[in-house]
């Protein structure tokens, strides 16, 4: 059941991207999609259940460690992209005095 909930998170992010008119909101929608994705992968790695993938003491069944290793990378990627996007937002605000897509895209020349 829980993988399905994470998909709702992803789709909510997509809905937000297709409707929000503010740049900061768009940035956060991307972050939401990314969080949903991370939760999805971790949940799918846990379909059978098991303990954490640390082999100290007596461990009989573990969850898949690959999703966890890959998701560390994804988190770092996501955070850097958010940082870059927010810095661009600040700069856009300094230049245009607004962070609405409409006002920013309308003044290209």
């Amino acid at each position: 059941m829980s993988p399905i909930l994470t998909i709702i998170v992803i789709l909510v992010g997509l809905y937000g991207l297709a409707t929000s008119k503010n740049i900061i909101k768009s940035v956060f929608c991307v972050t939401i999609i990314e969080s949903g994705l991370i939760l999805l992968f971790l949940n799918l790695g846990n379909l059978e259940g098991g303990s954490i993938p640390i082999l100290s003491g007596l461990v009989e069944n573990i969850v898949d460690p690959i999703p966890q290793a890959l998701m560390i990378t994804t988190i770092v990627i996501g955070s850097t992209i958010t940082a870059l996007a927010l810095m661009l937002c600040i700069k856009i605000f300094h230049h245009f005095g607004s962070i609405e897509w409409k006002e920013v895209l309308g003044r290209e020349e």
């Binding site: 991307v30 996007a85 661009l88 856009i92 290209e108």
Partner: peptide, 19 residues
């Protein structure tokens, strides 16, 4: 200004694709 605007448009759209 326009270059920041094009930059963020590129960044966000392509990140969604990559995700």
């Amino acid at each position: 200004g326009p270059s920041f605007q094009a930059g963020i448009y590129y960044l966000l759209l392509n990140t969604v694709g990559a995700l």
